[in-house]
Lab assay of single mutants.
Amino acid sequence: KTVEVNGVKYDFDNPEQAREMAERIAKSLGLQVRLEGDTFKIE
């Protein structure tokens, strides 16, 4: 899975870890996480 923030992509081998990281980043920035294919987009 991939986490994308402001056009910057971070790859994770563990999908659960990617989801947790995406949620943590989104919460700290006051944004939403949206799953698009294999990418968690933070917008």
Results as ranks from 00 to 15, higher is better:
residue 27 K to C: 14
residue 22 A to P: 00
residue 12 F to G: 00
residue 41 K to C: 13
residue 29 L to R: 03
residue 23 E to L: 11
residue 43 E to R: 06
residue 26 A to W: 03
residue 19 R to A: 09
residue 41 K to N: 03
residue 8 V to A: 07
residue 8 V to H: 10
residue 5 V to A: 04
residue 18 A to P: 00
residue 38 D to H: 08
residue 34 R to G: 04
residue 7 G to T: 02
residue 25 I to F: 07
residue 38 D to V: 05
residue 16 E to A: 11
residue 27 K to D: 10
residue 7 G to S: 04
residue 17 Q to F: 09
residue 42 I to M: 05
residue 4 E to C: 15
residue 11 D to E: 15
residue 34 R to I: 13
residue 24 R to P: 00
residue 3 V to L: 06
residue 28 S to F: 14
residue 31 L to Y: 08
residue 15 P to A: 13
residue 12 F to K: 01
residue 40 F to D: 01
residue 18 A to L: 04
residue 38 D to F: 07
residue 16 E to D: 13
residue 23 E to T: 08
residue 42 I to Q: 00
residue 28 S to L: 15
residue 33 V to T: 04
residue 43 E to D: 12
residue 24 R to I: 11
residue 35 L to T: 06
residue 33 V to S: 03
residue 10 Y to I: 09
residue 41 K to M: 09
residue 43 E to Y: 14
residue 21 M to L: 10
residue 31 L to Q: 06
residue 10 Y to H: 07
residue 8 V to N: 07
residue 31 L to P: 00
residue 6 N to R: 06
residue 4 E to G: 02
residue 2 T to E: 04
residue 14 N to S: 14
residue 33 V to P: 04
residue 39 T to F: 05
residue 41 K to R: 10
residue 42 I to C: 04
residue 12 F to Q: 01
residue 11 D to H: 15
residue 32 Q to I: 15
residue 11 D to S: 15
residue 13 D to I: 08
residue 17 Q to S: 11
residue 20 E to Q: 11
residue 5 V to S: 04
residue 1 K to A: 14
residue 41 K to E: 02
residue 34 R to F: 10
residue 1 K to E: 04
residue 13 D to K: 09
residue 33 V to C: 15
residue 9 K to S: 09
residue 30 G to A: 04
residue 24 R to F: 12
residue 23 E to M: 10
residue 21 M to W: 15
residue 7 G to Y: 03
residue 12 F to Y: 08
residue 14 N to W: 07
residue 35 L to V: 13
residue 4 E to P: 01
residue 24 R to D: 07
residue 22 A to W: 04
residue 38 D to M: 06
residue 12 F to D: 00
residue 1 K to V: 13
residue 32 Q to S: 14
residue 20 E to P: 00
residue 15 P to K: 07
residue 29 L to P: 02
residue 16 E to F: 08
residue 13 D to Q: 11
residue 26 A to D: 01
residue 29 L to K: 04
residue 6 N to K: 06
residue 33 V to G: 03
residue 10 Y to T: 05
residue 25 I to P: 00
residue 4 E to S: 10
residue 21 M to Y: 15
residue 37 G to H: 07
residue 21 M to N: 06
residue 11 D to G: 10
residue 30 G to P: 00
residue 42 I to L: 12
residue 27 K to H: 12
residue 8 V to F: 11
residue 26 A to C: 08
residue 41 K to L: 12
residue 31 L to K: 05
residue 35 L to K: 06
residue 23 E to H: 12
residue 32 Q to R: 10
residue 9 K to D: 03
residue 17 Q to M: 13
residue 12 F to M: 04
residue 31 L to D: 01
residue 7 G to I: 02
residue 42 I to D: 01
residue 11 D to M: 15
residue 29 L to G: 03
residue 18 A to Q: 00
residue 13 D to L: 09
residue 23 E to Y: 14
residue 14 N to A: 07
residue 17 Q to W: 07
residue 13 D to N: 09
residue 15 P to H: 13
residue 8 V to S: 07
residue 2 T to M: 09
residue 11 D to P: 11
residue 25 I to K: 00
residue 37 G to F: 06
residue 25 I to Y: 06
residue 36 E to T: 05
residue 7 G to D: 03
residue 29 L to D: 03
residue 40 F to H: 03
residue 14 N to T: 14
residue 30 G to L: 03
residue 2 T to N: 08
residue 3 V to F: 04
residue 35 L to M: 08
residue 3 V to Y: 03
residue 23 E to P: 00
residue 6 N to P: 01
residue 42 I to F: 10
residue 20 E to N: 08
residue 22 A to Y: 03
residue 26 A to N: 02
residue 26 A to L: 03
residue 6 N to W: 13
residue 9 K to P: 05
residue 18 A to G: 02
residue 27 K to M: 13
residue 30 G to H: 06
residue 27 K to T: 11
residue 34 R to C: 11
residue 25 I to H: 02
residue 43 E to N: 09
residue 8 V to M: 11
residue 35 L to W: 08
residue 35 L to A: 05
residue 2 T to R: 13
residue 35 L to S: 05
residue 23 E to V: 09
residue 15 P to I: 13
residue 1 K to L: 11
residue 5 V to H: 09
residue 31 L to H: 06
residue 15 P to T: 11
residue 22 A to F: 05
residue 9 K to A: 07
residue 9 K to M: 10
residue 41 K to H: 12
residue 40 F to E: 01
residue 33 V to K: 00
residue 27 K to Q: 13
residue 3 V to A: 01
residue 34 R to V: 13
residue 17 Q to E: 15
residue 3 V to C: 11
residue 42 I to P: 02
residue 43 E to S: 12
residue 3 V to G: 01
residue 4 E to L: 13
residue 11 D to R: 15
residue 3 V to H: 02
residue 5 V to Y: 14
residue 33 V to W: 14
residue 36 E to P: 00
residue 2 T to A: 12
residue 21 M to S: 06
residue 34 R to A: 06
residue 28 S to P: 03
residue 1 K to Y: 15
residue 28 S to W: 15
residue 20 E to R: 10
residue 4 E to W: 13
